[in-house]
Protein backbone atom coordinates (compact mmCIF):
# COMPACT_ATOMS: atom_id res chain seq x y z
CA UNK A 1 0.00 0.00 0.00
CA UNK A 2 2.79 2.42 0.92
CA UNK A 3 4.52 1.44 -2.33
CA UNK A 4 1.47 2.57 -4.23
CA UNK A 5 1.30 5.81 -2.26
CA UNK A 6 4.95 6.54 -3.05
CA UNK A 7 4.30 5.78 -6.69
CA UNK A 8 1.39 8.22 -6.74
CA UNK A 9 3.53 10.84 -4.98
CA UNK A 10 6.22 10.51 -7.62
CA UNK A 11 3.58 10.67 -10.34
CA UNK A 12 2.19 13.93 -8.95
CA UNK A 13 5.67 15.42 -8.57
CA UNK A 14 6.61 14.48 -12.12
CA UNK A 15 3.37 15.87 -13.50
CA UNK A 16 4.05 19.10 -11.62
CA UNK A 17 7.47 19.13 -13.20
CA UNK A 18 6.13 18.52 -16.72
CA UNK A 19 3.13 20.87 -16.54
CA UNK A 20 4.98 24.20 -16.95
CA UNK A 21 6.84 22.80 -19.95
CA UNK A 22 3.64 21.52 -21.49
CA UNK A 23 1.96 24.86 -20.78
CA UNK A 24 4.71 26.79 -22.56
CA UNK A 25 4.69 24.46 -25.57
CA UNK A 26 0.89 24.50 -25.95
CA UNK A 27 0.63 28.23 -25.23
CA UNK A 28 3.08 29.17 -27.96
CA UNK A 29 1.70 26.60 -30.37
CA UNK A 30 -1.86 27.81 -29.97
CA UNK A 31 -1.48 31.56 -29.44
CA UNK A 32 1.69 32.44 -31.32
CA UNK A 33 2.26 29.87 -34.04
CA UNK A 34 -1.49 29.25 -34.43
CA UNK A 35 -0.96 25.96 -36.20
CA UNK A 36 -2.05 22.46 -35.54
CA UNK A 37 0.67 20.22 -34.20
CA UNK A 38 1.56 17.60 -36.81
CA UNK A 39 0.81 14.05 -35.59
CA UNK A 40 -0.80 15.42 -32.47
CA UNK A 41 -1.92 12.03 -31.28
CA UNK A 42 1.55 10.60 -31.59
CA UNK A 43 3.07 13.54 -29.73
CA UNK A 44 0.57 13.19 -26.90
CA UNK A 45 1.29 9.47 -26.69
CA UNK A 46 4.97 10.36 -26.57
CA UNK A 47 4.43 12.74 -23.67
CA UNK A 48 2.48 10.11 -21.77
CA UNK A 49 5.29 7.60 -22.31
CA UNK A 50 7.89 10.14 -21.18
CA UNK A 51 5.88 10.89 -18.07
CA UNK A 52 5.23 7.25 -17.19
CA UNK A 53 8.81 6.33 -18.00
CA UNK A 54 10.17 9.02 -15.70
CA UNK A 55 7.85 7.99 -12.88
CA UNK A 56 8.94 4.35 -13.09
CA UNK A 57 12.56 5.38 -13.46
CA UNK A 58 12.59 7.78 -10.50
CA UNK A 59 10.54 5.48 -8.30
CA UNK A 60 12.83 2.55 -9.07
CA UNK A 61 15.94 4.61 -8.32
CA UNK A 62 14.42 5.90 -5.11
CA UNK A 63 13.49 2.42 -4.02
CA UNK A 64 16.51 0.40 -5.01
CA UNK A 65 19.54 2.37 -5.96
CA UNK A 66 19.67 5.53 -3.95
CA UNK A 67 19.28 4.05 -0.44
CA UNK A 68 21.94 1.42 -1.04
CA UNK A 69 24.25 3.77 -2.95
CA UNK A 70 24.04 6.40 -0.22
CA UNK A 71 24.63 3.81 2.48
CA UNK A 72 27.68 2.57 0.60
CA UNK A 73 29.05 6.08 0.20
CA UNK A 74 28.67 6.48 3.95
CA UNK A 75 30.39 3.20 4.78
CA UNK A 76 33.21 3.55 2.28
CA UNK A 77 34.23 6.94 3.63
CA UNK A 78 34.20 5.71 7.23
CA UNK A 79 37.71 5.98 8.76
CA UNK A 80 37.30 2.58 10.44
CA UNK A 81 36.75 0.91 7.06
CA UNK A 82 39.62 2.80 5.46
CA UNK A 83 41.97 1.67 8.23
CA UNK A 84 42.60 5.11 9.61
CA UNK A 85 43.22 4.58 13.31
CA UNK A 86 42.47 7.99 14.75
CA UNK A 87 39.33 9.44 13.15
CA UNK A 88 40.22 12.93 14.41
CA UNK A 89 43.39 13.08 12.37
CA UNK A 90 43.22 13.14 8.62
CA UNK A 91 44.82 10.11 7.02
CA UNK A 92 47.37 10.37 4.25
CA UNK A 93 45.60 10.90 0.94
CA UNK A 94 46.70 7.47 -0.27
CA UNK A 95 44.62 5.85 2.47
CA UNK A 96 41.45 6.90 0.72
CA UNK A 97 42.03 4.64 -2.28
CA UNK A 98 38.65 2.91 -2.06
CA UNK A 99 36.92 6.27 -2.07
CA UNK A 100 38.57 7.32 -5.34
CA UNK A 101 37.80 3.95 -6.89
CA UNK A 102 34.16 4.10 -5.81
CA UNK A 103 33.92 7.69 -7.11
CA UNK A 104 35.30 6.58 -10.46
CA UNK A 105 33.02 3.53 -10.74
CA UNK A 106 29.86 5.31 -9.62
CA UNK A 107 30.62 8.29 -11.88
CA UNK A 108 31.04 6.06 -14.91
CA UNK A 109 28.06 3.80 -14.30
CA UNK A 110 25.53 6.49 -13.41
CA UNK A 111 26.49 8.55 -16.46
CA UNK A 112 25.93 5.61 -18.78
CA UNK A 113 22.38 5.39 -17.41
CA UNK A 114 21.67 9.13 -17.56
CA UNK A 115 18.56 9.66 -19.75
CA UNK A 116 19.48 13.22 -20.82
CA UNK A 117 22.82 12.02 -22.12
CA UNK A 118 21.13 9.21 -24.05
CA UNK A 119 18.87 11.85 -25.63
CA UNK A 120 21.72 14.12 -26.70
CA UNK A 121 23.80 11.18 -27.94
CA UNK A 122 20.90 9.86 -30.05
CA UNK A 123 20.41 13.31 -31.57
CA UNK A 124 24.13 13.71 -32.27
CA UNK A 125 24.26 10.34 -33.99
CA UNK A 126 21.24 11.23 -36.10
CA UNK A 127 22.45 14.74 -37.04
CA UNK A 128 26.00 13.64 -37.83
CA UNK A 129 24.67 10.86 -40.04
CA UNK A 130 26.33 8.27 -37.85
CA UNK A 131 29.80 9.87 -37.93
CA UNK A 132 29.46 10.32 -34.19
CA UNK A 133 28.41 7.04 -32.62
CA UNK A 134 25.95 7.46 -29.75
CA UNK A 135 27.62 4.79 -27.63
CA UNK A 136 31.14 6.03 -28.27
CA UNK A 137 30.10 9.50 -27.19
CA UNK A 138 28.43 8.18 -24.07
CA UNK A 139 31.47 6.15 -23.04
CA UNK A 140 33.74 9.17 -23.57
CA UNK A 141 31.44 11.33 -21.45
CA UNK A 142 31.17 8.66 -18.75
CA UNK A 143 34.95 8.33 -18.56
CA UNK A 144 35.16 12.10 -18.21
CA UNK A 145 32.68 12.09 -15.34
CA UNK A 146 34.47 9.16 -13.68
CA UNK A 147 37.85 10.88 -13.77
CA UNK A 148 36.29 14.18 -12.74
CA UNK A 149 34.54 12.80 -9.68
CA UNK A 150 37.55 10.73 -8.62
CA UNK A 151 39.68 13.88 -8.79
CA UNK A 152 36.94 15.83 -7.01
CA UNK A 153 37.01 13.41 -4.07
CA UNK A 154 40.80 13.70 -3.96
CA UNK A 155 40.36 17.47 -3.77
CA UNK A 156 38.07 17.18 -0.75
CA UNK A 157 40.48 14.77 0.96
CA UNK A 158 43.53 16.91 0.25
CA UNK A 159 41.69 20.14 1.01
CA UNK A 160 43.03 21.97 -2.04
CA UNK A 161 41.19 24.92 -3.55
CA UNK A 162 38.16 24.18 -5.74
CA UNK A 163 38.64 27.29 -7.89
CA UNK A 164 42.17 26.21 -8.73
CA UNK A 165 40.97 22.96 -10.30
CA UNK A 166 38.04 24.52 -12.11
CA UNK A 167 40.08 27.38 -13.54
CA UNK A 168 42.88 24.99 -14.51
CA UNK A 169 40.26 22.80 -16.21
CA UNK A 170 38.88 25.78 -18.14
CA UNK A 171 42.33 26.66 -19.43
CA UNK A 172 42.81 23.09 -20.64
CA UNK A 173 39.39 23.14 -22.35
CA UNK A 174 40.31 26.41 -24.12
CA UNK A 175 43.57 24.91 -25.38
CA UNK A 176 41.79 21.74 -26.55
CA UNK A 177 39.14 23.83 -28.32
CA UNK A 178 41.82 25.42 -30.50
CA UNK A 179 42.91 22.05 -31.83
CA UNK A 180 39.68 20.03 -31.83
CA UNK A 181 37.62 19.40 -34.98
CA UNK A 182 34.99 22.15 -35.39
CA UNK A 183 32.08 19.75 -35.68
CA UNK A 184 32.28 18.44 -32.12
CA UNK A 185 32.99 21.64 -30.19
CA UNK A 186 29.38 22.59 -29.45
CA UNK A 187 28.47 18.96 -28.71
CA UNK A 188 31.41 18.62 -26.33
CA UNK A 189 30.33 21.73 -24.40
CA UNK A 190 26.79 20.40 -24.25
CA UNK A 191 27.89 17.07 -22.86
CA UNK A 192 29.20 18.87 -19.79
CA UNK A 193 25.71 20.03 -18.94
CA UNK A 194 23.80 16.82 -19.50
CA UNK A 195 25.86 14.50 -17.38
CA UNK A 196 24.65 15.78 -14.09
CA UNK A 197 21.02 15.00 -13.74
CA UNK A 198 18.61 12.43 -12.43
CA UNK A 199 20.89 9.50 -11.63
CA UNK A 200 24.26 11.09 -11.03
CA UNK A 201 23.46 14.04 -8.78
CA UNK A 202 21.92 12.25 -5.75
CA UNK A 203 24.64 9.60 -5.56
CA UNK A 204 27.49 12.01 -6.15
CA UNK A 205 26.07 14.48 -3.64
CA UNK A 206 25.84 11.66 -1.07
CA UNK A 207 29.44 10.73 -1.74
CA UNK A 208 30.60 14.33 -1.36
CA UNK A 209 28.69 14.69 1.86
CA UNK A 210 30.05 11.35 3.19
CA UNK A 211 33.65 12.33 2.57
CA UNK A 212 33.28 15.86 3.86
CA UNK A 213 31.66 14.53 7.05
CA UNK A 214 34.42 12.03 7.76
CA UNK A 215 37.50 13.93 6.69
CA UNK A 216 38.69 16.11 9.60
CA UNK A 217 38.95 19.76 8.65
CA UNK A 218 36.43 19.53 5.81
CA UNK A 219 33.09 21.30 6.14
CA UNK A 220 30.23 19.05 4.94
CA UNK A 221 28.19 21.98 3.72
CA UNK A 222 31.02 23.83 2.04
CA UNK A 223 33.05 20.95 0.65
CA UNK A 224 30.10 18.74 -0.21
CA UNK A 225 29.47 21.13 -3.06
CA UNK A 226 31.81 21.22 -5.98
CA UNK A 227 31.76 17.58 -7.07
CA UNK A 228 29.01 18.32 -9.58
CA UNK A 229 31.22 21.03 -11.06
CA UNK A 230 33.94 18.43 -11.66
CA UNK A 231 31.36 16.14 -13.24
CA UNK A 232 30.37 18.90 -15.68
CA UNK A 233 33.86 20.04 -16.60
CA UNK A 234 35.70 16.80 -17.26
CA UNK A 235 33.32 15.34 -19.87
CA UNK A 236 34.08 18.37 -22.06
CA UNK A 237 37.75 17.49 -22.01
CA UNK A 238 36.97 13.82 -22.57
CA UNK A 239 34.77 14.46 -25.63
CA UNK A 240 37.23 16.95 -27.15
CA UNK A 241 40.02 14.47 -26.46
CA UNK A 242 38.05 11.60 -27.99
CA UNK A 243 37.42 13.67 -31.13
CA UNK A 244 41.08 14.65 -31.37
CA UNK A 245 42.15 11.05 -30.97
CA UNK A 246 39.74 9.88 -33.68
CA UNK A 247 40.93 12.64 -36.00
CA UNK A 248 44.55 11.74 -35.38
CA UNK A 249 43.92 8.02 -35.94
CA UNK A 250 42.07 8.76 -39.19
CA UNK A 251 44.90 10.95 -40.41
CA UNK A 252 47.46 8.29 -39.62
CA UNK A 253 45.32 5.70 -41.36
CA UNK A 254 45.09 7.89 -44.47
CA UNK A 255 48.81 8.62 -44.60
CA UNK A 256 49.64 4.93 -44.22
CA UNK A 257 47.20 4.10 -47.04
CA UNK A 258 49.04 6.36 -49.46
Amino acid sequence: MTELMKFIDTLILTIRDVLPILGILIGFQVFVLRRKIPNLQRVITGFIFVLLGLVFFLQGLEQALFPLGKLMAEQLTNPAFLGIENPDIKGHWTQYGWVYLFAFAIGFSTTIAEPSLIAVALKAQQVSGGAIAANGLRIAVALGVAIGIALGTYRIVSGTSLSLYIIGGYILVIIQTMFAPKLVIALAYDSGGVTTSTVTVPLVAALGLGIATHVPGADPLLDGFGLIAFASLFPIMAVLGYAQLTQWLNKRQQSSDK
Binding site: F47, V50, L54, F57, I118
Partner: peptide, 14 residues
Protein backbone atom coordinates in the same frame (compact mmCIF):
# COMPACT_ATOMS: atom_id res chain seq x y z
CA UNK B 1 11.03 -0.30 -17.81
CA UNK B 2 10.99 3.41 -17.00
CA UNK B 3 14.06 4.16 -19.09
CA UNK B 4 12.68 2.15 -22.03
CA UNK B 5 9.35 4.00 -21.95
CA UNK B 6 11.12 7.35 -21.59
CA UNK B 7 13.33 6.77 -24.63
CA UNK B 8 10.33 5.66 -26.68
CA UNK B 9 8.35 8.75 -25.64
CA UNK B 10 11.35 10.88 -26.47
CA UNK B 11 11.51 9.60 -30.00
CA UNK B 12 7.82 9.94 -30.79
CA UNK B 13 6.94 12.97 -28.64
CA UNK B 14 9.64 15.30 -27.33
Amino acid sequence: IGLALFIYGLEIGL
